[in-house]
């Protein structure tokens, strides 16, 4: 009886094979072949030229993930301590920006960060540049903010912060309140309760938050193009130009995508292993 009901999953398993597994097989096939057909490793040997881009992508994504964690964890924690009603509204407010496509929101940052943008206008209106120029003798008219790595990281943090807050919040919110009470009854101060109980128990949320911020950050191409200009090329931009851009070469693009995917999967596996260890330690 039970097995027959499993048949409900059959169409979707077919779908998975066709549109999840087969495309990845295609990427692997393309990565190991040349335009003329036939097996080659040339796509990978050519990749050394892009080591700088790889390094930059991972550096910026790591920075964005850390900042998201530093902001997102306290926010998730604070929200979970508020009333039910407040919590629901806060969650809605965090989800709401996502319903405006992320490109629209990133575009808005362009007008804030430009050299003649709103922030620089604000600084100049309050006389900040005059002050700095008077103090240092420099001749500053604006802060160069757009087209820098900082702007790209800001764009990543802005877009993916909700992905950090949501999983951490949902783990903390589901936490058994009696555990905290027990810790307090046994004489732990609130700092100790946090360090010994809340933090370890919220680790699964942190791990999934880190994944959900790091993966889109390391592979983004629109954010870097809008806020980083043409100087701060990232892995995503590199892959994009191989598929739709001027440098059309899906074989090289697939190889880059494959390497990126493998590096990310390895990172996540290591992190999850580490996280599981922690969890078990807590259970014991």
């Amino acid at each position: 009886m039970k097995n027959r009901r499993a048949l409900f999953a059959v169409p979707y398993v077919g779908w998975l094979a066709l549109f999840v597994v087969a495309p990845i097989v295609m990427v692997v096939l393309y990565a190991f072949s040349s335009a003329a057909g036939g097996f080659t490793l040339e796509n990978f040997s050519r990749m050394g030229a892009y080591a700088v881009v790889f390094a930059r992508s991972f550096k910026l994504a790591l920075a964005a993930t850390l900042i998201c964690l530093l902001i997102g964890y306290p926010v998730a924690y604070m929200i979970s301590r508020e009333s039910q009603r407040f919590q629901r509204v806060a969650m809605m407010l965090i989800m709401l920006p996502m319903w405006m496509n992320f490109l629209l929101r990133t575009y808005s940052w362009m007008s804030i960060l430009e050299n003649t943008g709103l922030l620089n206008r604000l600084f100049s209106a309050i006389g900040l540049f005059r002050l700095i120029n008077a103090l240092t003798g420099a001749n500053l008219e604006y802060f160069p903010m757009i087209n820098t790595q900082g702007a790209v990281v800001l764009g990543m943090v802005y877009n993916y912060l909700p992905f950090m807050i949501l999983p951490i919040y949902s783990v903390i919110e589901k936490m058994d309140a009696s555990l905290l009470e027990a810790a307090r009854d046994l004489g732990a101060g609130s700092a100790r309760v946090f360090r010994k109980v809340i933090l370890p128990l919220s680790l699964p949320g942190v791990l999934s938050g880190v994944t959900m911020v790091f993966v889109p950050s390391v592979s983004t191409f629109a954010i870097s193009k809008l806020l980083g200009g043409s100087n701060e090329l990232l892995l995503g931009d590199l892959i994009e130009t191989q598929f739709v851009g001027t440098a059309y070469n899906p074989h090289l693009g697939s190889a880059i995508a494959l390497v990126m995917m493998v590096v990310v999967v390895v990172c996540m596996a290591v992190m999850n292993r580490f996280g599981e260890g922690e969890e078990q330690a807590v259970m014991l």
């Binding site: 087969a22 993966v215 892959i239 994009e240 598929f243 995508a257």
Partner: peptide
């Protein structure tokens, strides 16, 4: 998976 990988892999398919 990164969105771009999902995107290009479906495109290839």
């Amino acid at each position: 998976n990164a969105d771009i990988v999902t995107g290009v892999s479906l495109c290839l398919l």
